[in-house]
Computed example of a mutant assay.
Amino acid sequence: MKARLAMVVGDPAGIGPELTAKLLADRGNLEKASVLIIADRDEVEEGMRIAGRRFDYELSDKQPDQLATSGVVLWNFRGGASQQFERARATANGGSYSLDTLRAAVEITRSGVTDGLLFAPLNKSSLHQAGLRHEDENQWFAELLNVTGPHGELNVLDNLWTSRVTSHVALKDVAGLITQERIIDGIALVHSTLVESGLETPRIAVCGLNPHNGDNGSFGREEIDVIGPAVEEARRRGYPAVGPFPADTIFLRASEFDAIVTMYHDQGQIAMKLMGFSRGVTVHGGLPIPIATPAHGTAFDIYGRGTANVGAMQAAFDICVAMSAARRSMFAAA
């Protein structure tokens, strides 16, 4: 049975509405899923104007309680945003709109009207101006969904997944946050997500923290005292993890693995974005509903030009469709 996606167009000051138009104007995508867009109608129309492409939609002024098996429904919803949106800059108004539409999409998906959630790029400065107090969206999603177990952002490029032990924190704080349990949680998170996606025995590599993997303790002992023992314990718990490996070479061996666990944000993100910036996806792992988004940002600098690359949005759509279809099949079989 076809998946049903809730979709949010992201920060209105950026390229999200344009990406939405380009994605849904491709009729092949609507053969994969039915879509509920939760957005201000004017923003959707503006996105189509910028993209120079249109898609048909059924307009609703209230939350639909079900979706047709094909096509697009637009719930004309603005949340608490009361002013006109400024373009190409971070604002509290844009952040409020992003959070309100996302919150509605989470509730709709949790209720079963949709199976998964896809959102176009957000701007963290806008979100924080609007009152977000979490380090990132994943923490906010976890609170909305009452998740207390391991959860975090997973980054995906083609067939390679990464998880990270620390995420949106200052680099000076990273070493103090590297613990055995956090490393094991990072391994377990990417393992369980890949298994749920159909990969029975994921091959998982774990990065070290220090230059040259610490060089036997010459440049730090985290690999010896914390990371290595954590990998051993993860293996005892049944996770097929190996490492730690030097972070500056492990991505050269990426084809040998299905997933790489990194110690901090840029350790994996720089490599993944260099390998395929226009295809990278962020999956919000450890949550009870599938949530995916492009790994890139709002690109304020090219707002309105119609030149935004839809590749990462397409990849996020495809992953979200696959995970949502699996979730729907699971509930149908229950």
Rank of each mutant, 00 (worst) to 15 (best):
A3T: 12
G10Y: 00
E18G: 10
L23Q: 13
A25M: 14
A25L: 11
A33H: 00
A33T: 00
I38S: 03
V44H: 05
A51K: 09
F55P: 14
D56N: 13
D61L: 13
A68T: 10
T69S: 15
T69K: 12
V72P: 01
L74D: 09
L74V: 06
N76G: 14
G80F: 06
Q84F: 15
F85K: 05
A92R: 09
N93F: 05
G94V: 05
G95F: 06
D100T: 08
A104N: 04
A104W: 03
A105L: 07
G116D: 11
L118R: 03
N123A: 11
N123E: 13
N123L: 05
S125G: 06
A130Y: 10
E135Y: 14
N138M: 12
A142W: 02
L145S: 01
P150L: 02
H151M: 10
G152C: 08
L154I: 07
V156D: 03
L157K: 03
D158F: 07
D158T: 12
W161R: 08
T162A: 09
V165H: 08
T166Q: 04
V169N: 05
V169P: 05
A170W: 14
A170T: 09
L171H: 13
D173T: 07
V174H: 07
G176N: 04
I178W: 04
T179S: 12
E181W: 08
D185I: 03
D185A: 05
G186E: 00
I187A: 04
A188P: 06
V190Y: 03
G198W: 13
T201Q: 14
T201W: 13
R203W: 00
I204M: 04
I204D: 10
C207P: 01
G208T: 00
P211V: 03
H212A: 04
S218P: 03
V226H: 13
A241L: 11
A241M: 13
G243A: 09
F245K: 14
P246I: 07
A247P: 12
A247K: 13
A254C: 14
A254T: 12
F257I: 11
A259I: 03
V261C: 06
T262A: 12
M263T: 06
M263W: 06
Y264P: 08
Q267A: 04
Q267P: 07
I270G: 05
M275R: 02
H284A: 06
H284L: 10
G285P: 02
P290M: 07
I291K: 01
A292W: 02
T298K: 01
A299T: 00
D301I: 00
D301L: 03
D301P: 08
D301M: 02
Y303K: 10
G304R: 02
R305I: 07
G306S: 13
G311T: 10
G311V: 11
M313H: 08
A315W: 08
A326E: 07
M330I: 04
A332T: 12
A334H: 04
